[in-house]
Design a protein around this nucleic acid. Sequence first.
DNA 1: TATAAAACCATAAAATACCATAAAAGTATT
DNA 2: AATACTTTTATGGTATTTTATGGTTTTATA
Lengths: 156, 156
Amino acid sequence: MPKTKTVKMSLFLSSYENRLDTKGRISVPSSFRASVSSERFAGVVLYRSFTNKCIEGLSMSRMEQLAAATDKMGVFDSELDDLSAMLFADARPLAFDVTGRIVIPEDLLKHAGITDKAVFVGRGNSFQIWNPEEFKKAQEKSLNNLRSARPNLIIG
Amino acid sequence: MPKTKTVKMSLFLSSYENRLDTKGRISVPSSFRASVSSERFAGVVLYRSFTNKCIEGLSMSRMEQLAAATDKMGVFDSELDDLSAMLFADARPLAFDVTGRIVIPEDLLKHAGITDKAVFVGRGNSFQIWNPEEFKKAQEKSLNNLRSARPNLIIG
DNA sequence: TATAAAACCATAAAATACCATAAAAGTATT
DNA sequence: AATACTTTTATGGTATTTTATGGTTTTATA
């Protein structure tokens, strides 16, 4: 068995709204930076969400996990293979600058409808980047979904 | 079988009323701190309760369990996915300071109607934080519910 | 050389560490 | 059982650091 160094990766939690400057730079929330601080690559990997009007974000090690999983499954599941192919083709590794900022590529911003502000949203082992308004809308929608699915579970 | 490191987590028990200072700091009851003292993350994770006017609290390891479960199940259960998404987005990891205090974020305090005092309520593997008055009201209400549901079970 | 990208510098506000103390709880001693 | 002593806990205030954000300069590159 290949020796796999399993880096215990801390979770991406909570949500943070930050602002893009004139050059497109935006601070990655410090707690998100901390989540990947023990990794080789000091940065994150972004790609356009397949399902939502937002950007998906991962640590590089998670990307590698995904690659490994695809290697195993690929032969048996051509759909998964296609999906991961798209993902890898679309994925952008973005290194933090000294102050913890990244420059999100144009096409990703466009896909998410982001201009001057963005919310980093924790999703456990991954995160998302949204236009603040779009995010609020999406949140309300999934809250309504849950309400109708499990009326007794939710009040807020 | 993958080697799963099981962190021994002791239970959150009993209730403690503490006071918030001007900066929003509040001491986490020492017995609650002891419950997570063997964990990597010296702190707790808080989020707005979906069902009550209170704050929910968990250990980080519990949060990680959830993330692992969501990773496995998410694909098959979109409801679970929605729920955990909301949870991760709302969850605040809060580290203890040297004296065992945390700063509860504004929006959580608001959700629970907490201003200057709060009760930490043990719930076994989790806990809640309430405005003292609200908690008393909620207690009486659920006691009445029990009374009407099982009149013979309750003496108090 | 023009242009984009990276490195560098600066700062207000927010978050965290640090220091101090009184009250409470626990221990030991008579 | 009452007392003196020790330790822990909760709480308050102050100092220091970090973070997010803006701008400028230098370096690559097309």
